[in-house]
Structure formats: C-alpha cells, structure tokens
Amino acid sequence: MSVLVVQHEDECPPALLGDWLVEAGVALDVRRPYADEALPSDLADHEGLVVLGGAMNANQDGTHPWLAPTKDLIRAAARDDVPTLGVCLGHQLAAVALGGEVGRCPRGRQIGVYDVGWTDAAATDPLFAGLASPRRAIQWNEDLVLTPPPGATLLAATALDEVQALRFGPAMWGIQWHPEATLEILTSWAASEPGPAADAGLDAVRGAAVELELAWRELGKAFAARLA
C-alpha cells in the first residue's frame, strides 16, 4: 500500500505518523513541493493521501503555489473515496478545498497540550472509534476551521465549540492537533518563534511526550486499515 504524503516545510515532516504507517506496512511517497518536488496530477498510483502541517495559511495559494494543486488532490480523494488524513494545515486545506472557511482562532494561538474534546460521533467513527481513549494531544496553531464544509461531521471540539477534528466524507478526516510531532520537532518550532507561549507549550509537551506517543500510535494502524 502506498500513501502520498504532502509535506510543506522541512520542519514539518511525517515523523511519528510516518513511522507508525511504515510499521503497519504502508509505503510512504513523501513529496516536498516547496523544494521543487512535483506533486502527481492524480492519486491513481496511491491508496491513500496524507497532508501535513505548515506555518502558512490555507488560503495563501499565491505565495505558496503548491497549495492549489494540493487542494485539487484533496477534492479528487473526496470524489473517489481515497482514504485521506489532514494534519493541522492539511486539515484546514481539506476544509477550504471542500467549501469550508478557515481563519484565525478567536481566542488566539493554541500551543501546548490540550484536551481533544471528542464528540459522540467519534465513538462510531470508522477511523477514531477505537481511538477515543486519547484525551490529550499537541496543539501548535493560530488558525482553525471556522466553518466546516457542507456534510462534514464534527468529531472533536473545544469547550467553546472550536473545531478540532472533522470527517469530511466516508474516507476523509482532518485533525487540528499534531500526533506526528516529536519533542525535537517542537523544539525547532519554539526556536523559530521564541516567547513565553512557546516556552510554556514546549514544557507541557516535555511532561507528556511519552504518554502522547503511546496514545496516538494506534492512529497509524487505524489509517492503514482504512487503506486495506
């Protein structure tokens, strides 16, 4: 099984998520369009799609020209029911590609370890039904899905109803959090934007890193199962 992985920055690799997918028997075709690696025109050679995070905004197609073809791939995956997982920016790109709205988080940035906020729908979701036990996850963002696209199902939200996870269709999911991020990756993110918020967020992750890696490892297996 081969999964196309769209990576947007050197600092945002598939990392742990990639490791878990490989352990589950999935071959990763990682494309870095920001480094002039071409994206395929379709998903004919892949059984799945993973779109990773990045510092750019989901609407910045003009300054990051690969975002538009990434959205085209997302729309093709939605049309053909190709299993797809969007992480942070990838989640937001899916929302925009399918008719939703993304913008700044009304309460400001989310950095650190936050409650997931599962909804009742997650308990019967094809991907997350067996994963509803992880109650916390790493957040590092300033944008959120403000308006989900038509037909999307809310799977997780904050106490103030801010979207944290969606099922966009029968085989497409998006999550606002970062199950893939290692402490090394997060340290590089904190170094690029030094300040109290980043320092506090990094400290929170240090205290929960082992718990979070163990909690989210099953996500790789669950997504691999959807490919099969």
Results as ranks from 00 to 15, higher is better:
3 V>N: 01
5 V>G: 03
7 Q>D: 14
8 H>I: 01
9 E>M: 14
9 E>S: 15
15 A>G: 08
19 D>A: 13
20 W>E: 05
22 V>E: 08
24 A>E: 03
24 A>M: 04
25 G>H: 03
26 V>L: 06
28 L>M: 05
32 R>M: 09
33 P>A: 12
33 P>V: 03
36 D>K: 09
39 L>D: 05
43 L>A: 07
47 E>W: 13
51 V>S: 03
65 P>R: 08
66 W>F: 06
69 P>Y: 01
69 P>W: 02
72 D>G: 13
78 A>E: 02
79 R>A: 14
80 D>M: 08
81 D>Q: 11
82 V>N: 00
84 T>G: 08
87 V>G: 00
87 V>M: 06
87 V>K: 01
88 C>I: 02
89 L>F: 02
93 L>A: 02
103 G>N: 02
104 R>G: 07
106 P>N: 06
107 R>Q: 12
110 Q>N: 06
114 Y>D: 11
114 Y>I: 04
117 G>T: 07
117 G>Q: 10
123 A>I: 08
124 T>S: 11
125 D>M: 05
128 F>C: 04
132 A>I: 15
132 A>N: 14
132 A>G: 10
139 Q>S: 06
141 N>R: 09
145 V>Y: 02
149 P>I: 03
149 P>H: 04
155 L>I: 13
156 A>E: 01
157 A>W: 05
157 A>H: 12
162 E>A: 11
164 Q>L: 15
166 L>W: 05
171 A>K: 11
181 A>W: 00
186 L>C: 14
189 W>H: 15
190 A>T: 07
191 A>T: 11
192 S>V: 08
194 P>H: 09
196 P>R: 11
203 D>C: 10
204 A>L: 08
204 A>M: 14
206 R>V: 14
206 R>W: 12
208 A>I: 02
208 A>E: 14
214 L>K: 10
